[in-house]
């Protein structure tokens, strides 16, 4: 049996986590091909509907990743993102979504190695969870 390959959508902020992904690349760090990065200017612009849409389209996991607290280039976008993630983490599990499929991390621009490690670990975690229920059943 072939191993389950999850699809994970990662919304990464331009200034920190995307830069870290870039650094991981230039430092020849490797990370799983399961990640699909969506570059946004700030995690503060990631509306809940983007995340819900990703799940409805069959993503097995969604990651939102931005600057460490205090480092946001728009002063407080990451704090707003954290509140929205809190909101979704209260709502989605009510309908049987495993909360581990939805993750928020802070990865700074210089953390290329940490970026690659996080991607590897997250992919493994979602692989263990198996395919999302939105994938198998019919979704209205």
């Amino acid at each position: 049996m072939t191993e389950f390959e999850p699809n994970i959508i990662a919304f990464v902020c331009n200034w920190c986590t995307y830069t870290a992904a870039d650094l991981a690349g230039t430092s020849r760090q490797s990370y799983p091909k399961n990640m699909r990065l969506v570059r946004v200017m700030c995690t503060g612009m990631v509306d809940s509907q983007y995340i819900i849409k990703a799940f409805m389209e069959g993503a097995d996991g969604v990651l939102v990743s931005g600057c460490h607290p205090g480092d946001c280039h728009y002063i407080n976008g990451n704090y707003k993102a954290r509140r929205r993630m809190k909101m979704l983490k209260e709502i989605l599990p009510l309908f049987g979504f495993e909360p581990q499929r939805l993750r928020l991390t802070w990865i700074g621009a210089s953390d290329g190695i940490q970026f690659a490690e996080t991607m590897r670990e997250l992919t493994e975690q979602v692989r263990v969870l198996g395919p999302s229920q939105a994938k198998s059943g019919m979704v209205l």
Partner: peptide, 13 residues
């Protein structure tokens, strides 16, 4: 609104 030191438990993997 938000506070700087809240909901730490939802951050990280």
């Amino acid at each position: 609104v938000f506070r700087e030191d809240e909901f730490q438990e939802i951050v990280g993997i």
